[in-house]
Simulated assay, not measured.
Amino acid sequence: MVAGGCENSSVGIQTQLRRANTVFRFVALGYPVLLGGLAFDALVRPLWAALLVVVLLGWTWAATEWYRRRGYEPKALYTDLAVTVCAVAASSWALATDTGVPVSVGPWMAGAVLAWAAAWGRRSGAVAGAVVAAAGMVFRGGVHSSTVNETVLLVLTGFAAGHLVRLGVVAEQRMREAAERSATVRERERLARDIHDSVLQVLALVQRRGAEIGGEAAELGRLAGGQEEALRALIRSESYRDPLGGQRDLRSLVGRHAGATVTVAAPATPVPLPAETARQLAAAVASAVDNVREHCPAGTKVWLLVEDDGEAVQVTVRDDGPGMEPGRLAAAAAEGRLGVAQSIEGRIRELGGTTAVVSAPGEGTEVEMRVPRGEGGAGGDARRGR
């Protein structure tokens, strides 16, 4: 059964069906009016028959206004179905003829069924059709060809209308998501062009002039070159990433660091994580790589290892730099230098993960960041099921 809140997420098709149902209900009133007019001389209670038609007209107007103002709220739907059942019962008395066969309100009964199908889907539509058909059997002479035909038509109408609404809801959602992705891609491409024409050109110039000048300027040029390479990789990964249903492939975010001094090892299959989780974990990895470039000699090698065991994702950043003395991180935090404490450990802790830093003088440094998969678990389950 489709949730009652789908009115907001599928306003397009539900609004169109509600308007079509409004027209249908008013037109369908012509059925009992026409048959009643043709059999007017045979009606046992013609005045009551006329009053019933007026009541049905009034309720049709009231129901359509209720739906228009308040949407398909449960109170309106249940009331509409109850009034329809009462109308079926009243018609067996008010529209009775001297032949013993009452005039039916006919297609008008389907109005409430269509409303239920539009609001709550095919199952609810079929149930509403069955309820109205059961009332017809109870008050209009039991099971015979006429009531059986009405039952089949009402149940099928509710089921088919609900199914079409559900298909429309899915189609609208996909179109909306496609439009959002298209707009996002166009904006990224515009930003990529602007960055290429400004920031990347400046970084390339700094790298080239630094190499020409030499000395400390050469080191600045090397850092500028590394940042230019990382920024180009960022633009490529953001502009052409694979769609993962609102998730991000961690490999593309970490892979942008690959270069002459950075080696990245990752699984052959995507490592999907919720978008924000992936961004924060990638930011922590970037901070660890930046620490190596800032505190280690030029040419220090860095290895990034991405592991996915289904329950959690772990990224290890290891370098062959000079390492750190025991207690160095605690001393840096006490001095107010919170790069590791906040940029790395703080981010991972907020994601519900853990961080381990292993280092010793002359043996390099290893930073292990492990984050539980959380809502990205579906991806891990899918891989384990392969």
Rank of each mutant, 00 (worst) to 15 (best):
V138A: 14
A112N: 08
T147M: 02
H144P: 04
H196T: 14
L220P: 02
T99L: 06
G215P: 01
G129I: 07
L205A: 13
R122E: 04
L223N: 01
V202W: 01
A183I: 04
Q173E: 15
G210R: 05
V170H: 13
E180H: 12
E216T: 10
V165W: 00
T99S: 15
A117F: 01
A179E: 14
R176L: 12
G158R: 05
A128T: 06
T151N: 00
R190E: 11
V165P: 05
V152S: 04
G168C: 01
R176H: 11
A119R: 06
L154I: 05
E229K: 09
A179Q: 13
R236W: 04
V105N: 03
L191W: 11
R241E: 14
R166G: 13
E216C: 02
A119Q: 04
G245Y: 10
T147G: 06
G162D: 01
E228D: 07
L220D: 03
E228A: 11
G245V: 10
M109V: 15
P107N: 06
G100K: 09
G226I: 00
G141R: 00
E187V: 04
G221K: 01
G111I: 09
A115T: 12
Q227Y: 10
L234P: 00
P107H: 05
V103F: 05
V103P: 01
G245S: 12
R122L: 03
A130R: 03
E219F: 03
E177A: 15
L200T: 08
V131S: 04
I235R: 08
S124H: 05
G225C: 02
G162T: 00
L167T: 10
E180W: 06
T99N: 08
R186F: 03
A211R: 12
A161H: 07
H196Y: 06
L231F: 05
A133M: 10
E150D: 11
V138R: 03
E187Q: 13
A118Y: 00
Q201V: 12
M109C: 14
S104T: 13
V152C: 06
A134V: 15
G100L: 04
V199Q: 00
A160M: 13
T99F: 11
E228Q: 08
R140I: 02
G162A: 04
R190T: 11
A160I: 14
V169T: 15
H163V: 06
V165R: 10
R241K: 15
L153Q: 09
V143L: 14
R190V: 08
R186P: 03
T184F: 09
G214R: 08
R236K: 11
V127I: 14
A135E: 09
L156K: 08
L244Y: 15
V131T: 13
T151G: 13
E219S: 11
G225P: 08
F159K: 01
S237N: 09
V170K: 13
A135F: 02
V185A: 12
Q201F: 03
G210Y: 03
Q201D: 03
W116L: 08
L205W: 07
S239N: 10
A183L: 11
S146L: 13
L205F: 06
A128C: 08
L220V: 12
A192P: 03
A126S: 06
V148P: 09
